[in-house]
C-alpha cells in the first residue's frame, strides 16, 4: 500500500511554514540578549538618549540667560542648531547622533555573533535545523534579524524618543510634520545599518576558524575600510575606496535623502563630495546593493556540507 494512504491517519491540520524565520530570529535574539556585554551596549544607547534629553531640556530652560541652542528659522520653519557662527539643520544633528548610536549596534552584533551562530555552525545544530521545512534564506534572514534586531530596535526607539522630545519643546504639529522625513530617514539609516551589520556578521562567521578571526574581519569591513577611505586625499581614489566602506555609503545615502546641501559641519571629505554633487548619488545605493549581494552570496559558506 502506498505510504501516503497510511500517513494521513496522523495528519491533524495544515501547517504554517512561511514564518519559520521568526522562530529563528526569536531564538537568536534570546541567545544574544543573555550575554552581559549586550545589556551594557543597550544601556549605552539609553544613556545617549538621557544626554540628548538633558541638552534639549537645559537649552530650553536656559534661553532666558544664554543664547538659544535650538532655533526655529522663521522663514523656513526648520529647526536649526546654532553652534558659534554656524547653524546646523536638524538632519545633521540627527546624523551626528546616529553616528554615536551606530557604535553600540555594531559592537553588539560583533560580540553576539558567536553566541548566535556557533551552536548552529560549529555545534552541528544547523544539520538538525535544516532538516526542517526551512529555506536557507529564511534561516539567514532569521539570524540577521535576531542578531541585529534588538540593538537596531533600541536605537530606533531612542531616535523616536529624541524626536518626540524636540516636538514637545519646540514644534507644533505642522512643524513636526515638516521634520518627519528626518525621523523616517534616521530610522531607515538604522535599519539599513543594522541589517548590513547582521548580514556581514553572518557572512563573515567562519565555519572552521576562530571567533577572533571572524571579529577581525568584521572590524576591518566596517572600520578598516572607513579609515582607509577617509585617509585618502585624491578624490578619485577616495571615491573608489569609499565605495568599499559601508559606513560611508550609509552616511552618504542618509545625507542625500535628508537633502543636506551645505557641507558645513560634515567632516568626511567623501561625504562633502556627495553633498556637493562631485560624486553622483546613484553610485551609493548601487554600491550598497553590491555589498548586500556579496555578503548574501558569502553566507553560502555556512551551509557547506549541511544543505
Amino acid at each position: 500500500m502506498p505510504i501516503y494512504d497510511l500517513s494521513y491517519q496522523r495528519y491533524d491540520g495544515p501547517r504554517r511554514l512561511g514564518f519559520l524565520w521568526w522562530t529563528i530570529a526569536r531564538t537568536t535574539a534570546q541567545a544574544t540578549l543573555k550575554k552581559p556585554a549586550n545589556s551594557r551596549y543597550l544601556f549605552f544607547i539609553f544613556v545617549t538618549f538621557l544626554g540628548f534629553a538633558f541638552l534639549v531640556y537645559f537649552w530650553r530652560t536656559a534661553t532666558e540667560y544664554a543664547t538659544a541652542l535650538f532655533e526655529i528659522d522663521p522663514d523656513t520653519g526648520s529647526l536649526e542648531i546654532r553652534l558659534g557662527h554656524y547653524k546646523f539643520p536638524l538632519s545633521l544633528v540627527f546624523f551626528r547622533y546616529l553616528s554615536i548610536l551606530f557604535w553600540p549596534v555594531i559592537l553588539y552584533v560583533i560580540t553576539s555573533v558567536s553566541a548566535a551562530l556557533s551552536a548552529d555552525v560549529l555545534g552541528g545544530g544547523l544539520t538538525v535545523i535544516l532538516a526542517r521545512p526551512l529555506r536557507r534564506r529564511h534561516y539567514v534572514f532569521g539570524k540577521v534579524l535576531g542578531l541585529a534586531g534588538p540593538p537596531t530596535l533600541s536605537a530606533t526607539l531612542v531616535i523616536f524618543g529624541a524626536f518626540v522630545l524636540l516636538w514637545g519643546y519646540y514644534f507644533n504639529f505642522f512643524q513636526m510634520l515638516h521634520h518627519l522625513p528626518v525621523l523616517l530617514c534616521s530610522s531607515l539609516y538604522l535599519f539599513l545599518a543594522g541589517g548590513m551589520c547582521g548580514l556581514s556578521a553572518v557572512a563573515f562567521h567562519p565555519r572552521t576558524s576562530t571567533f577572533r578571526k571572524s571579529a577581525g574581519w568584521l572590524f576591518f569591513y566596517w572600520f578598516g575600510t572607513w579609515i582607509f577611505s577617509t585617509a585618502s586625499s585624491n578624490q578619485a581614489l577616495r571615491t573608489i575606496v569609499s565605495m568599499g566602506s559601508p559606513i560611508h555609503l550609509l552616511d552618504g545615502i542618509y545625507l542625500w535623502l535628508t537633502g543636506v546641501s551645505n557641507p558645513q559641519g560634515v567632516d568626511s571629505r567623501f561625504l562633502r563630495d556627495v553633498i556637493t554633487g562631485d560624486v553622483p548619488f546613484y553610485l551609493l545605493p548601487s554600491a550598497l546593493l553590491v555589498h548586500f549581494l556579496l555578503l548574501a552570496w558569502r553566507t553560502r559558506n555556512l551551509f557547506v556540507g549541511v544543505r
Binding site: 500517513s7 555545534g123 552541528g124 538538525v128 532538516a131 521545512p133
Partner: peptide, 19 residues
C-alpha cells in the same frame, strides 16, 4: 524543503543545543 514537514531526521553527529 517543505517536504521536511513529513520527514524526521536524526543525525549521527551531535546536533543539539547544549544550553
Amino acid at each position: 524543503p517543505q517536504v521536511f514537514r513529513r520527514v524526521g531526521y536524526c543525525p549521527d553527529s551531535d546536533g543539539v543545543y547544549e544550553k
